[in-house]
């Protein structure tokens, strides 16, 4: 068994509807395409999303494992030899706030499973609930997704500030989504960085920006990751670039 520890990365946003899950799914495929073993954890524990984007239906979920009804390793659904999904359950509101017992169980569950992978991407729920914070705390790296809208900027800043004050995290990775012109991503990032620098004295690192792209919407409708479908579209190229930068992160 491989003893090497995986690189765990949370993908979070503060607010919903910025394309978090879509980016998580496509990043998982991008890393897998490059020969890495990737586990994608649907961290939206009460309102699963990943399965919808991928058109799969899971019988065994994080929930059933936590309830002791399934073996952790059986819960991982392999879409490809190098890509596992740990699905969440839908419509289970109590999973949104994690009690201490569940946190302990989830830690055991995740550490049992994750040793088999090179990268673990955790797609968190929207909002700032305890499960979102806990998963961000669990992950070694935090990627914050936002769109260039001022409201999305504020939400991203709010979750950064919360994780920073709660867990003393001082480095965050930023991905802009749904940008309309090439420089928009970098500019929005600079704004966020400047405010985070000035008020919180913490570092941000830019991982890239994904342009608004027709083929993304189409891919969602067809329940296929766009990166597998539209090989040359701008969004695919942008995701590949983000994946390249993720490969510079090291396990701690």
């Amino acid at each position: 068994m491989n003893k090497k520890r995986p690189i765990t990365i949370s993908i979070t946003s503060g607010k919903g509807g910025v394309g978090k899950t879509s980016i998580a799914v496509n990043l998982a495929y991008a890393l897998m395409n490059q020969g890495h073993r990737v586990l994608l954890v649907d961290g939206d524990l009460g309102l699963a999303n990943v399965d919808i984007l991928l058109g799969i239906s899971a019988q065994t979920t994080i929930r059933t494992v936590l309830d002791g009804e399934a073996d952790p390793l059986d819960a991982v659904l392999y879409l490809k030899p190098g890509l596992g999904i740990l699905p969440a359950s839908s419509g289970v509101p109590e999973m949104v706030s994690l009690g201490i017992d569940q946190q302990e169980k989830l830690t055991t569950l995740l550490s049992d499973i994750t040793s088999h992978f090179d990268y673990v991407l955790v797609d968190t729920a929207a909002g700032i609930g305890s499960s979102v914070l806990w998963l961000n705390h669990f992950a070694s790296y935090n990627i914050v997704i936002l769109t260039p809208d001022p409201t999305s900027l504020t939400d991203a800043y709010a979750i950064i500030k919360t994780i920073f004050t709660q867990f003393d995290r001082t480095l965050f990775y930023i991905v802009l989504n749904l940008i309309r012109e090439p420089k928009e991503g970098q500019k929005a990032y600079e704004t966020l960085k400047k405010v985070a620098n000035q008020f919180l004295n913490l570092e941000l690192e830019y991982l890239g920006a994904i342009p608004e792209d027709k083929s993304v919407k189409e891919a969602v409708r067809q329940q296929t990751p766009f990166i597998q479908k539209a090989l040359r579209c701008p969004a695919t190229r942008a995701i590949m670039l983000v994946a390249e930068r993720i490969k510079n992160l090291r396990a701690d």
Binding site: P148, Y157, T162, Q166, K194, V195
Partner: peptide, 20 residues
């Protein structure tokens, strides 16, 4: 239950003004 850390008016103002 974590109460989200509040974003202050100064922080919001700077975010918005830079962005606009």
């Amino acid at each position: 239950t974590v109460v989200p850390t509040e974003v202050t008016t100064e922080e919001k103002d700077l975010l918005f003004s830079l962005r606009y």
